[in-house]
C-alpha cells in the first residue's frame, strides 16, 4: 500500500465521516465546520489526482467564500441547536432509508460498468495544471466562460434586488 493509497483511504474516510457529521450535527455551526472539513478532504483528493488548480479553487471558492457566507448567515441569525426544530423521527428515518436505498441502487447499477477496469491517473498527468487548464479555458471554452459572466451579473443584480432595503 503506497502513500497514494493511504492518502486516498484517509481522505475518503475523512470526507465521508465529515459529510455524515454535516447531516447529523444538531448545531448548524458544527455542520458548517464539518462541511469545511469535507471540502478540504475533497481538495485533498484533487491533489492526489494532481488537479492542483481545482484543489486550490475549491479551497478558495468553497471553503474560503461560500462557507464563510454560510457561517456568516448562521451567525447573524444566531441559530443554535435549540432553535432548529427536528423533523419527526420517523420522517428522518424514512429520509435516511430513502437515501440509503438510492445509494444501493446506484452502487448496484454501476458496479459492473464497462469502465470498471479503468484507472484514474493519480499523481501524474499535467492536465490539472493551471497552465493547461487556462489555455483550454481561454481558447475552446471562452464562450462558456463569457456566458458564466452573465450568470454572475444576474446573480449580482439578483442579490441586490433581494437584499436591498426598500
Amino acid at each position: 500500500m503506497g502513500i497514494t493509497q493511504i492518502l486516498f483511504w484517509f481522505l475518503s474516510i475523512a470526507a465521508i465521516f465529515s459529510a455524515l457529521m454535516v447531516i447529523s450535527s444538531k448545531n448548524p455551526v458544527h455542520s458548517v465546520l464539518w462541511l469545511i472539513v469535507t471540502f478540504f478532504s475533497i481538495s485533498g483528493h484533487y491533489i492526489v489526482l494532481n488537479a492542483q488548480f481545482l484543489a486550490i479553487v475549491n479551497v478558495i471558492v468553497y471553503a474560503g467564500a461560500i462557507m464563510v457566507l454560510f457561517l456568516f448567515v448562521i451567525m447573524l441569525m444566531n441559530l443554535n441547536k435549540e432553535s432548529e426544530p427536528q423533523k419527526h423521527k420517523w420522517l428522518r428515518i424514512a429520509g435516511a432509508v430513502a437515501g440509503g436505498c438510492l445509494l444501493l441502487v446506484f452502487v448496484a447499477a454501476l458496479k459492473d460498468t464497462d469502465i470498471k477496469h479503468q484507472q484514474a491517473l493519480v499523481n501524474t498527468g499535467n492536465i490539472g495544471l493551471i497552465k493547461n487548464l487556462g489555455k483550454e479555458l481561454f481558447t475552446t471554452y471562452v464562450v462558456p466562460f463569457e456566458i458564466s459572466s452573465i450568470l454572475f451579473l444576474s446573480a449580482m443584480v439578483g442579490a441586490v434586488v433581494i437584499g436591498k432595503k426598500e
Binding site: P144, I147, S148, I150, L151, S154, V157, G158
Partner: peptide
C-alpha cells in the same frame, strides 16, 4: 449554464 442563467433570475 443556460438552465442556471434562466433559473437564478427566476428565483
Amino acid at each position: 449554464l443556460g438552465i442556471e442563467i434562466i433559473s437564478i433570475p427566476l428565483y
